[in-house]
Design a protein around this nucleic acid. Structure first.
Length: 106
DNA sequence: CTTCTGACA
DNA sequence: TGTCAGGA
């Protein structure tokens, strides 16, 4: 099926390479080389937070795709979904903290 | 496309 | 435990 409501030949739109690059779940699954069912399992474990459209379809941004890649790498490293979830949480906390406060460097 | 349940390595 | 497969 591949529901792509976006991407209607809209060149006039600004093109932020991150956070707004939307992909269908099938495209994201193909990109990471896994099935759509696995992507849902990752989201259920809190490894990802894809934007949900009004239709209920998931929209995977480039950032989410990068996160998926990290998941695959950590999974190959021998970690389970729970361990990856912790890594993701800590990484997200660190990212937010870095943007909020001034880096304690010098 | 979504959700859930079941089975296999 | 994680992945694959089927049906609603």
């Amino acid at each position: 099926m591949i529901d792509r409501s976006k991407g209607s030949s809209n060149m006039s739109e600004a093109e932020p390479g991150r956070t707004r690059g939307v992909y269908g779940i099938s495209v994201a699954a193909d990109l990471v080389g896994t099935g759509v069912q696995n992507l849902r399992a990752y989201e259920a474990r809190g490894l990802l937070s894809p934007v949900r459209t009004a239709g209920g379809t998931r929209r995977y941004s480039a950032d989410d795709l990068d996160r998926l890649r990290r998941i695959c790498d950590l999974l190959d490293a021998g970690l389970n979904l729970a361990g990856i979830a912790m890594v993701m949480q800590l990484q997200d906390e660190n990212h937010q903290l870095r943007e909020q406060t001034t880096p304690p460097h010098q």
